[in-house]
Design a binder for these strands. Structure first.
Lengths: 199, 199
DNA sequence: CCGCCGTTTGGACGAATGTCAAGATTTTCT
DNA sequence: AGAAAATCTTGACATTCGTCCAAACGGCGG
């Protein structure tokens, strides 16, 4: 009982600090975010970060894992109630576009961290896990589309994920620089992609 | 005449320093590359960098432009002598896979810089230019494929680029972490993508 | 040979960084 | 209430960063 509350409080504060760190990272990007700027996004001083995290790498990796939690929670609902193939494609397209519109800075951070993981091995495992769960999410949709269309997928799960991710990343780029048709183009591109991936 | 040689020497040295900087950036990534580490990749001292470049941003942007030069030069040749659609697709697939295998660290740097451009506005214009030329390169191939197949492209140039880029980026990720089938999967993915993009 | 001018060096600067520890403060338990 | 444990602040440290500058180097025309 007592032990429970103690570790729980500790973990709660870790989460709180990580969430603040994620906001700072989303604002400035990995390269420009220091521990002190992270602390400025909280109500605490910078020294506290080293009470809850051994060093900067542990903090960042914890942030990445936390981001992943929110990510899979968001997408695991999936698009269940679609009766026709095109309805499913449209629902998926709207979902991706909504995700982009809702939190573009978080997705920008995701691509930043994924790039960083190619240089910093400490991030690779967590980033790979997130990539896997995103790939699963995409594949569930492709498989569901194929079933509704009474066809078979003509691509592998990594292939499908790469294609969808390419569309999403480009849309994010254009959305961030202010292109107003980025979201619509993303929706259109996603809708058109589904039929290209089944027999 | 004399003036020519002076400015030429100046520009030559700028190029030389930028090339060394690109090697350092490819090694360490943007976030971890300082002016002193760049200087260590040259035969000169760190002070010299400020003789040839006003500040770090100007150096990096110059590097990005220089990278672009090499990029477009490499791809502008294109795949001219293909008689059948599948031959063209295979040539393009081999070209992209070869580019990845030949200089994976440079491509890693490209994706790093593209991510940075989402945070640092100073890089955006140069990055956008490179993206445009890559998009053109992809579109030339898609159009050529459509002609050989006596069909019409069913996608826009940005769409095509996004899809190819998604495949390439994933292949790069997997290649860098040591996946041995990354190159083969990239070739297969590219070959299969062409027929999906024409009527 | 000297003096000039473009080049290069190496050190210095202030600011910012990650890390750490000692002390102050708050919470918790008896 | 008082002791013990936790949480948090504060200031300091050694480095490293981008930037700047005075001095030294080197080739070339006079």
């Amino acid at each position: 009982m007592r032990r429970r509350t103690r570790v729980d409080k500790f973990e709660d504060r870790r989460r709180e600090l990580a969430d603040a760190a994620l906001l700072a990272l989303a604002d400035l990007g990995y390269a420009r975010t220091s521990l002190r700027t992270i602390a400025e996004h909280t109500q605490f001083s910078h020294g506290l970060l080293h009470y809850y995290f051994a060093d900067k790498v542990e903090l960042i990796t914890y942030c990445v894992r936390r981001y992943k939690e929110a990510c899979v929670k968001r997408y695991e609902g999936g698009v269940g109630g679609a009766a026709t193939p095109s309805a499913l494609a449209e629902a998926c397209a709207d979902g991706l576009a909504a995700a982009l519109e809702e939190a573009p800075l978080m997705h920008r951070l995701w691509y930043d961290l994924r790039s960083q993981s190619l240089f910093e091995e400490a991030f690779r495992d967590d980033v790979a896990e997130i990539d896997d769960s995103l790939q699963e999410m995409i594949w569930r949709n492709v498989r569901a589309y194929a079933e509704l269309a009474e066809a078979e997928p003509t691509c592998t799960p990594p292939e499908a994920y790469a294609l969808f991710d390419g569309l999403f990343q480009q849309a994010l780029q254009r959305h961030i620089v202010g292109a107003e048709d980025a979201l619509d183009d993303l929706r259109r591109g996603v809708r058109k992609l589904f039929p290209r991936l089944v027999s």
